[in-house]
Amino acid sequence: MKKIIICFLLLLGITGCGKNQEDTLNVLNWSSYIPDSIIEDFEEETGIIVNYSTYSSNEELLAKISSAKEGTYDLIFPSDYMIELMINRDLLEPLDKSKLVNINNLKKEYLNLDYDKNNTYSLPFLATTTVIAVNRDHIKDNITSYNDLLNPNYKNNIVLLDDQRIVIGMANQALGYSMNTTNDLELKKAEEFLLDLKKNVKAYDSDSPKTLLITNEVDIGVMWNAEAALALRENPNIEIIFPKENGALSIDNYAIVKGAKHKDNAYKFIDYILRPEVMKQIIEEYPYINVNEETEKLLSSEYLANKAANIPDYIINQAEMVQNIGSNIDKYDKLWALIK
């Protein structure tokens, strides 16, 4: 009996030690965004222990931040419209840019954007745009628009993102409306479009739509460019199509949560990733759109040749961004529950 108690106390001790580590950093990031090796390198260099957890949508991130006790998370990676919303709700800490030596590496065109003028609260991490990926081994039709996905021949053959703003936005765009419409009539039309499209949808998956494409589970997917680029790496017969409706552009940002306990460590982590060679590693493992000027010079020919990775500027410029629509979000919530 004594032995058991001693063992037990030891165990409690271990748990206690884990908690009291001052030199930690609690990162909450999108799944498949930063390779484990980068985090391990950072830990080795700085001695900081990174607790890394993931989310799969901006809405999930917001729910996690607003329900967790202040100080639970330090560093997060919200997208553009979510930054605006979090600033309005006073969830973010203003950034002290003097702590970021490598800040000048960032491309100017991704700074001072509408959602956070002067970048008081956020700095861009990377950008991404939606593309259509088609497996040319099986699908020969000409596809140029989201409307082409309604083709009854594609029954159960499409994967879409499991993200309400992006998927409903896609329907809006296909119908010629703004991605962010809150007009009831237009949303009703979008609902019909999505119910029609649902017959062709095999799965909604934000975490890894590429898997379904690679394993031939589906032949068509609307997904973030990096997912498509990774699918292309596995199967060169996948064609990347930029929809003529101008897809969605999303810029993900570093932001520090209000009341964060490890701010200095968060700055160290941001500054580490802002290093050109570190960003190069990240962007080559998960080929999103690079926002680092210095990294641009280092990128491999493989990345540059991958059509889904190296997105042309004109595509990025004409893509539409998700806007914060306030309480109209209820309409999107309900529509989403209906089509799922």
Binding site: S57, E59, E60, L62, A63, K64, S66, S67, D162, K198, V201, K202, A203, Y204, D205, D333, A337, K340
Partner: peptide
């Protein structure tokens, strides 16, 4: 299920973890 069929468990989970309507 590929995220296509919403069960009560998924609905409750969504209300707590994504739709923020506790």
């Amino acid at each position: 299920g590929g995220g296509k069929l919403m069960l009560l468990g998924n609905l409750i989970k969504n209300q707590f973890l994504t739709a923020r309507n506790w």
